[in-house]
Amino acid sequence: MNSASGNEILQHKFSFSIWFRQLFVGFYNTAIFILKIFKETLRPPFEFREIIKQCYAIGVNSLPIISMTSFIIGIVFTKQSRPSLIEFGATSWLPSLISIAIVRALAPLITALILAGKVGSNIGAELGSMRVTEQIDAMEISSTNPFKFLVTTRVLSITLMMPLLVAYSAVLGLLGGYLNIHHNELTTFKTFIQNGFSQITFLDLTASIIKSVVYGFTIGVTGCMKGYNADMGTVGVGKAANASVVNSMFIIFIEEMVIVQIINYFRFA
């Protein structure tokens, strides 16, 4: 009995050490991958055409789903907040509450999660299938740097497009919130804007932009890394697409927590 539990403890220790080593190797590989992205981004030739193509694919093609989701979230959040504010007779605070929630948290987070699902999985699957069908090797043999052409352009495009998409998402979310408030409280657009933006500070806007850049970079790096290093045929492609989404979302939540802590430090300093 004792010996059995001893073996179990040993096995756990062994698997923990493997897990820890894999985690460390994973961090190391990610750091190398990111350094390579910076190096290739700054080194000519610059792939402007591919960057514009990717910006279009990532940005414009994501507009419909971001529009729908942000607009609905604006309405739903306003609807959910109203009963609590009615209890305190503070429905006049709704515009401020909605604006703060959308600009500070909802717009960056919702946009990031949508893009992690839509764009992250797409990048993971596309690069993964290019890897397993030797298209990346073919590119390398034709004297084109596949890392620069495929990875750098995608990471750069999503990092550039993310702040624009977050701003767009915030506008649509606020529009949804305004329509709901206008319908219930007959608040005018001017009052909504005045009340709403009275509480939004420069720090809030800066934080939102920083968050969106960080989230965009995270989605790009995760999707590209998983796809570019895919193996094991079609199973590997599926795993790359899946890991791109799951890992991106997980990292985004951790980043959200860290960034909020940092911003709050500056806010109350």
Binding site: S129, M130, Q135, A138, S142, S143, T144
Partner: peptide
Amino acid sequence: RLKIGFLFQGSALYDGMNVMENLSFS
């Protein structure tokens, strides 16, 4: 590599490009 041509087992044509773009790429 510019002096070497390589035909892959699965051809490895770029899926996202048409034949014209595949050929003109390099």
